[in-house]
């Protein structure tokens, strides 16, 4: 990936970005003022939080949403907590 200080010889022709999905290396978790906390006991694994998250930050593994929340990228919008049908997600002040 191009780094600050790279000269024109280091930059791919046409300014192409050659590594797909490299935005995951950019952390947006610092934008957050409130942090979603998932209560795994209450969760019914309906995946609504997973579907609605604009930042792909509710992680699901093998059909199980109880995996983890990706705090590196979660911006704390609170949609997951607001849409949870069983109130399994609390928004906690950072």
């Amino acid at each position: 990936m191009v780094k600050p200080g790279d000269g024109y010889k280091d930059i791919p022709k046409g300014g192409l970005i050659l590594e797909a999905g490299n935005a995951k290396n950019y952390k947006t978790g610092g934008w957050r003022t409130k942090k979603p906390i998932l209560d795994k006991e209450t969760c019914i694994n309906c995946h609504r939080c997973w579907a609605f998250c604009p930042d792909s930050s509710v992680l699901s593994e093998d059909g199980d949403v109880k995996a983890e929340i990706d705090y590196d990228h979660c911006k704390g919008c609170g949609i997951c907590a607001h849409e949870c049908p069983v109130n399994a997600i609390e928004m906690e002040k950072e």
Partner: peptide
């Protein structure tokens, strides 16, 4: 992927 810079929500 996450790490895009659309506004929160």
């Amino acid at each position: 992927t996450g790490g895009h810079r659309l506004c929160s929500g």
